[in-house]
Amino acid sequence: MLLLSLAAIAAEPSDVTVLTPPRAAIAHEAIWLKVTVGFLPRSSLLRITTDDGQPVGTISPFGTTPVQTPQDYMLPLPKSATVSEAVRLRIQIQEANGTSRTPKPSEVLGVALIYVSVSD
C-alpha cells in the first residue's frame, strides 16, 4: 500500500462525506478507501455507498471481543465512484434487525482515500 496523501474530508449537508484525492491515480495504481472503525456490535454491518447509491463495500468485523482497538479496513473503490474529482459517500450502520442508522463517532473514526500499487 502506498501511503497517505490525503484528502480533505468535508462533511456535506447531512450524511454525505466528501473526499477529494489530491491527484488522479497513475498507471498501476488504484485509489481505495481506508475506513477506521471503532467498536461495532457483532452482527452489525457498516455499509458504504456513493451518494447516488452505488455500493462501495460492507464492513463486518469477525470475532468481536469486548475491547476493540481502532482498526483500518481497506475497500476497493470503483472508478465510477469518483465524480468531478471527488468521492461522495454515505456510510450507514445496518443493525441485525434490518434497520439502518448513521454511525456514532465511536464506530467510524475516520475515512480516507489511499493509493494502492496494483498489478494490471
Binding site: W32, K34, R42, S43, L45, G57, T58, I59, S60, P61, F62, G63, Q71, D72, Y73, M74, L75, P76, A96
Partner: peptide
C-alpha cells in the same frame, strides 16, 4: 487493519455461515 482479502471474503463468509446476519 484488514486487507480486502481478510475483511471482505474472509470476514463476511465467516459471519454469514455463523448466522450473524
Amino acid at each position: 487493519g484488514f486487507s480486502v482479502m481478510e475483511n471482505q471474503p474472509h470476514n463476511l463468509v465467516h459471519n454469514c455461515v455463523g448466522g450473524a446476519y
